[in-house]
Design a binder for these strands. Structure first.
Length: 419
RNA sequence: GUGGGCGUAGCUCAGUUGGCAGAGCGCUAGGUUGUGGUCCUAGAUGUCGGGGGUUCAAGUCCCCUCGCUCACCCCA
């Protein structure tokens, strides 16, 4: 084995790769149905976009980015997340000068230089949705409902929704200071002490038992929300309840990205190992301004496609993938028959019926084996005798019933039998 | 970046106190000179992750290294 995929990356192979396509489609379907338009942005951006958008104080920016100079000396970075690019594109193309909110969804690869473990890879896939330019609790609720529907449509029943509010530029600084006062009195390591000064909310996210034990009496953001933030949060909660989307208030829930304000949520699943989040998001009212744009209060989420896949595996939803790859399989004997079969299979495909044939000069037995493995319902068998008679043997592989059909009529006969 | 576990056939793995590198599945061919699945028979595929050391002899013991994996830090 001379080469292998770079550390922390992996390949999707059949038949799992078919399932990952279905997962992606199912996650996107609810937002498409809600009028979100598809956006595709570059896999890399100016490094500065992420540094300012995601936040210098985050681990993503400080140690996890794939940053490289291009040949002209520009500093570029493989995108570690999708929101900054979406906001950049909206501002660049002035989408926000039209009707608001601008509703967009995306699907694509993200890259973070991290030590790989179950559910966390250096190259991973997200489906995301963003609604930009409106401050309306119904919009927050809509996005959460749509994400929940995506999970439900995939058959997932053990996805839990955690909800919190991080406050806004009025109340968050007050809370932040109170939290810092509390945290400074704890017994913590140097890295964590440094984090208290840079991004104290993220200390609440620490999983280490010795840290968690000390956090028991920490001030909670819900107790510090200003009146508008509190009213906004209550409205989001009420709408979710009315929509029948179950959630758990988690006053400790914070996000790893600096741009979040007010509504914050995370979808978690117990079957993934330590990386429990299958999706997450929230409101980011200040991001546009951080990127040099106008005030553009927005909300969005990203769902991890491969983590969702792991969640489905954990719930036993993937099962055997016995789905037939093709409906019809061609078996030919001899060079002349092979050439005719090549054309016949193409005719079948042009008629809208999926078809494959035996390649590689296999004998009849091997070719029939291939027919069986393909999952095809019908085999078309063409030998010299058949060719001379201008006919083909049509075999139903489920019943082993075989009939002779004139070559000129095969496509029509198949049309009547499949679907 | 830190810590644990694991690297043997395409896959899942066995391999005893150091003594001829194995099984199941898969693959190929034959049994059936024109018929798949089940069955029977035969066959092919190995840098035992890599390098060094100890030894008459190393998959096995020692050192180094690379990779995978799980967990921490963090996050989708």
């Amino acid at each position: 084995m001379s080469f292998q995929a770079p550390k922390g990356t992996f390949d999707w192979l059949p038949p799992k790769s078919e399932q990952i396509l279905a997962v992606r489609a199912a996650l996107a379907q609810p937002v498409r149905q809600a009028g979100y338009g598809y956006i595709e942005t570059p896999s890399f951006e100016d490094t500065e976009l992420f540094a300012r958008g995601v936040g210098e104080s985050t681990d993503i920016v400080s140690k996890e980015m794939y940053t490289f100079p291009d040949k002209a000396g520009r500093s570029l970075t493989l995108r570690p997340e999708g929101t900054a690019s979406v906001v950049r594109a909206v501002l660049q193309h002035n989408l926000h000068t039209g009707q608001l909110p601008v509703k967009l969804w995306y699907s694509g690869s993200q890259y973070r230089y991290e030590r790989a473990q179950r559910g966390r890879y250096r190259h991973f896939w997200q489906v995301g949705a963003e609604a930009l330019g409106a401050e309306d609790p119904a919009l927050d609720a809509e996005l959460i409902v749509l994400a929940a529907r995506g999970f439900a449509d995939l058959g997932l029943t053990q996805v839990e929704l955690l909800l919190n509010s991080l406050g806004d530029k009025v109340c968050r600084p007050v809370y932040r200071a109170a939290l810092q006062d509390f945290l400074r009195g704890l017994d913590l390591d140097d890295d964590t002490r440094a984090r208290i000064e840079i991004n104290p909310l993220r200390v609440l996210d620490d999983n280490r038992p010795e840290v968690r034990a000390q956090l028991v009496g920490a001030p909670l953001v819900v107790d510090h929300l200003c009146a508008p933030c509190k009213a906004y949060h209550e409205e989001v909660r009420a709408l979710l309840t009315e929509a029948g989307v179950a959630f758990t208030d988690d006053p400790r829930l914070v996000r790893g990205l600096d741009y979040y304000t007010r509504t914050t949520f995370e979808f978690v699943h117990g079957g993934l190992g330590s990386q429990s989040a299958v999706g997450g998001g929230g409101r980011y009212d200040g991001l546009s301004e951080m990127l040099g744009g106008p005030a553009l209060p927005s909300v969005g989420w990203a769902v991890g496609v491969d983590r969702t896949f792991l969640a489905m595996e954990a719930e036993g939803l993937l099962g055997e993938t016995t789905e037939a790859r093709v409906q019809v399989y061609g078996v030919a004997l001899g060079d002349d028959a092979r050439r005719r079969m090549f054309l016949l299979v193409d005719e079948v495909r042009k008629a809208g019926i999926s078809a494959d044939m035996a390649f590689g000069g296999k004998g009849l037995k091997g070719a029939m084996k291939g027919a069986g493995r393909s999952g095809a319902r019908f085999a078309l068998i063409l030998g010299e005798r058949d060719l001379a008679a201008q006919a083909v043997q049509l075999k139903d592989l489920t019943t082993a019933e075989q009939t002779e059909v004139p070559l000129a009529q095969v496509v029509d006969v198949l049309k009547g039998k499949v679907q």
